[in-house]
Simulated scan of single mutants.
Amino acid sequence: MYFQTADIEVALWIPPFVAFVISFFTSMGGVSGAFLLLPFQMSFIGYTNPSVSATNQVFNVVAIPSGVYRYWREERMVWPLTWIVVFGTLPGVFIGAMVRVLYLPDPKHFKLFAACVLFYIGFKMVRDVLGNSNGGNKKKSEARFREMVKRNTSPGGAAASPATTVTCFNLKRLGFTFYGDAYNVSFWGILLLSFIVGIVGGIYGIGGGSIIAPFFITFFELPVYVVAGAALMGTFVTSVAGVVFYQAIAPFYPNLSVAPDWLLGILFGVGGMAGMYLGARCQKFVSAKAIKWMLAGVMVFTAIKYILNFFEY
Rank of each mutant, 00 (worst) to 15 (best):
V61H: 08
N49R: 15
G279Q: 12
S23M: 01
A274G: 07
T164Y: 10
M233Q: 03
G131D: 08
F219C: 04
S66E: 10
F245L: 06
F44N: 03
T26A: 14
G297S: 01
V10Y: 05
I190Q: 00
T82Q: 04
K108F: 14
L130Y: 06
N309G: 14
M233A: 10
G29I: 02
A158E: 14
D261C: 06
R73M: 01
S210L: 15
M294P: 04
T165D: 10
V21S: 00
S194V: 03
K172I: 13
I211R: 01
V237I: 15
V270Y: 00
G30I: 02
N137M: 05
S194E: 06
G234Y: 01
W13N: 04
K172A: 15
N56H: 12
N134P: 01
K139H: 03
I211D: 06
A97W: 03
I95T: 08
A248L: 14
S257A: 15
F178H: 02
V58A: 12
C282H: 13
L81R: 01
F252I: 08
G265S: 14
V10E: 08
S186Y: 05
V78F: 06
E74Q: 04
V117F: 15
F178T: 13
G122P: 00
S23Q: 11
G229W: 08
F187E: 13
V68D: 09
P91Y: 04
R146V: 08
L130V: 11
V58Q: 12
F59R: 04
R76P: 11
T167G: 01
L191I: 06
I45E: 05
V227K: 02
G271T: 05
T177E: 15
